[in-house]
Nucleic acid binder design. Sequence first.
RNA 1: GCCGCCGUAGCUUAGUGGUAAAGCACGUCUUUGGUAAAGACGAGAGCGCGAGUUCAAUCCUCGCCGGCGGCUCCA
Length: 572
Amino acid sequence: MTDRRTSLAELRHTAAHVLAYAVQDLFPDAKPTIGPAIENGFYYDFDRLQPFTPEDLEQLEQRMNEIVKANYEMTGQRVTREQAVDRFANNPYKVEIAREIPEGEPITLYTIGEFTDLCRGGHAHTTGEIGALKLMNVAGAYWHGDEHNPMLQRIYGTAWYTKEELDAYLLQLEEAAKRDHRKLGQELDLFSVEEEAGGGLIFWHPKGAVMRGIVENFIREGLRERGYEPVVTPHVVHEKLYDISGHLENYAENMFGPLEVEEQRFRLKPMNCPGHILIYKSKLHSYRELPIRYSEFGTVYRFERSGVLHGLTRVRGFTQDDAHLFCTPDQLQGEFEQTLDEALRLMNAFGFSEFEYALSTREPHLRTETDPVGEEAIRKALESRGLPYVIDEGGGAFYGPKLDIMLRDAIGRKWQLGTVQVDFVLPKRFDLKYRGPERDETPVMIHRALAGSMERFFGILIEHFGGNFPAWLAPIQAVITPISEHQLDYAHGVRKALHERGFRVEVDESNEKLGKKIAVWKTQKVPYILVAGKQEAADGTVNVNERGVDTKRSATVEQFAGELQTKVDTKQ
RNA sequence: GCCGCCGUAGCUUAGUGGUAAAGCACGUCUUUGGUAAAGACGAGAGCGCGAGUUCAAUCCUCGCCGGCGGCUCCA
């Protein structure tokens, strides 16, 4: 043992070796390739003709536990490139790795028991340090992540210091599954995807649509305050527009194919920018007008491969809270920073606090001399707000660098939501101009979608709240449940009073006992259940059963309305 | 798209080589009930779609479609 505690990553990396050892024992025909530690666990990719079955995984897990129990020491050995290539002569993957290790870097082999792997190191000292492990699933994965390469079989697993930690992790996964927006979307009747219509196309049900409207209104408020002008553009436009914009050249694989009408080719719009550009271009502009800010809840369609579609977070048709700013180069920095501030306001209002920023640069072959200007604007904006960020080399849009705001879903998968992008390219391609004090100039564009897409934002929102939406967002804010049908008239009177004040309220008219009604509305996660019995009808009150609060209380309809109004005003 | 797993009433699930069962939801009735699920009756699927094997397929085989987990890609 050692005086230094083995890190979780080292522990998991060791578990990957243990897995490869077990595979070598039970499935000698499988060729091990690579097996790193990842967040929450590890994986190992094997090249094997026959797929691993769930039963195989059980066997492997058993064998792994034996290897752990045997408490083999992990021993390292430095070798030459030739020795490594020789040692793994029957495994082309290992040979490739050995050949690609840069000159001067040590090449090491690590051994546990009867299994030796080519590996740069970073392990536990003994296999016995692994307190608990579990194989999770098998998946296909391409060698080096390139779909032109052979597909390998990736076995995912998790490993922990103790059994308790493993159990806690598995429980956490179960809990996360309950927050899954696809599950809640069905249970709360918010949205659906219909087989007859096709994957990745979202049907917003009444309750989901109500919530979407609330989000949209919030965003519209911000846009109005910051001087954006709403515009509306067509969903289908002539293909030549995307020829000019460069989408056909750079983005065609993400676009739906052409629609031919009267020998003309049309396309579903994959982005809103060209439309907004045409509006800008429809007349002459003076520098005195800038910045011009066009906003639109613009629905776009992008072809996504069937295997990547996922609930609301990865779809084929979605609506961006999109806007394009046309400004002078001098205005770029200020406009960019204001946009970032607005993004922060949005995230904050919806209760998101944990997100990450990424500065994505353009792919090297697309870079131009203006890229550093855009990157610098993004960097300065982030740094002036004290926001930490990572750099995503080559992850930018085809027309420029961008700042992305990433959020995690319930099980920790990262999704890109808001994006603010600097664009010197499209203004040139479309030959955009504004009249300067002395001569015509080319404006700079900022593309921005702060929620990103209404679909993805809503998906993350559902998981964030686990369906327990605050009253200002909840599709039904309160339900009035009469105890017997004798209070139905009273209940409708209360509903009318609350409805007239703008609240979303329903009456439960079902012929059920109170307990049943309460149970139903609790599972629907309604913020307030207002019980109206004989007593309440006589007093002009309701008995307030608030979500998450154990005690009930009596309130007049006016009192309750005031309380709810406060919640709505403060967005709680 | 690729690899693996899955596909039975609106939902959740049981089940079998001889044309399918339950709970919830739904409808009717009884009940008029005080804070997480009252009772009775009823209707509802030919078991994702197509082909094949078989005397016979929801169950076996193949293809397709859809979903899930990954890979790759992105808002």
